[in-house]
């Protein structure tokens, strides 16, 4: 653990239960919350008391072996200038979480994206209608269980080349090496 934590952060982290943090890189803190439900409180404190007005992104990671989704909230403060990545884990079923778009409007985009790509449900989200995959009927494609190649095999027809040189080569006993 690093020694120096910007003062406002010290107080914020102490007030949220189950927060563990460590220095991940220069001016980048990695924060883990043992209870996912405490995240909104942490965000509210960070925004209200430590100047973290910028939600840079929400990233989602699928961990099928643990049956979990990991959500990572990347936050920045234009004053403290220490990046924070806050990590929580959710059970993959039912894959439900609360929206933080009330605190951070950009969450609206990220939650919509994560919902579309991973199938995570965000309660109170601004808009969860499909955005990119409007005409998609399949499962959420960013899940590890979605097999891109298999999908392509099943849904598209493969067209092979048949150039003359290849036909000639095959006549001579050569050809494409599999």
């Amino acid at each position: 653990m690093s020694k120096s934590l910007p003062t406002p952060l010290e107080g914020v982290f102490r007030r949220v239960p189950g927060v563990r943090w460590r220095q991940q890189a220069e001016r980048h803190l990695r924060v883990e919350l043992s209870e996912a439900e405490n995240l909104p409180a942490l965000l509210a404190l960070l925004k209200g008391e430590a100047g973290y007005r910028h939600l840079s992104a929400i990233s989602c990671v699928d961990w099928p072996d643990a049956d979990e989704f990991e959500l990572v909230y990347h936050l920045d403060s234009y004053t403290t200038q220490v990046l924070i990545s806050a990590h929580i884990r959710l059970p993959a079923a039912p894959g439900r979480y609360v929206s933080v778009s009330g605190l951070y409007r950009p969450a609206g985009f990220f939650e919509r994206d994560i919902h579309e790509m991973f199938g995570v449900q965000f309660e109170g989200a601004l808009d969860l209608r499909p955005f990119i995959l409007t005409e998609w009927g399949g499962p959420p494609p960013m899940r590890k269980s979605f097999d891109t190649e298999g999908y392509v095999r099943d849904h598209y027809q493969w067209v092979d080349y048949g150039p003359e040189w290849l036909a000639e080569l095959e006549k001579r006993g050569g050809g494409i090496v599999e």
């Binding site: 840079s56 990572v72 990347h74 950009p106």
Partner: peptide, 23 residues
């Protein structure tokens, strides 16, 4: 921004691209 997770293997486990235009 890029958020990249590695599981220690020869390929990335997850790459999340945060482009400014998304906002």
């Amino acid at each position: 921004a890029y958020y990249i997770v590695s599981d220690g293997s020869a390929k990335p486990w997850r790459v999340h691209v945060r482009g400014p235009s998304q906002m």
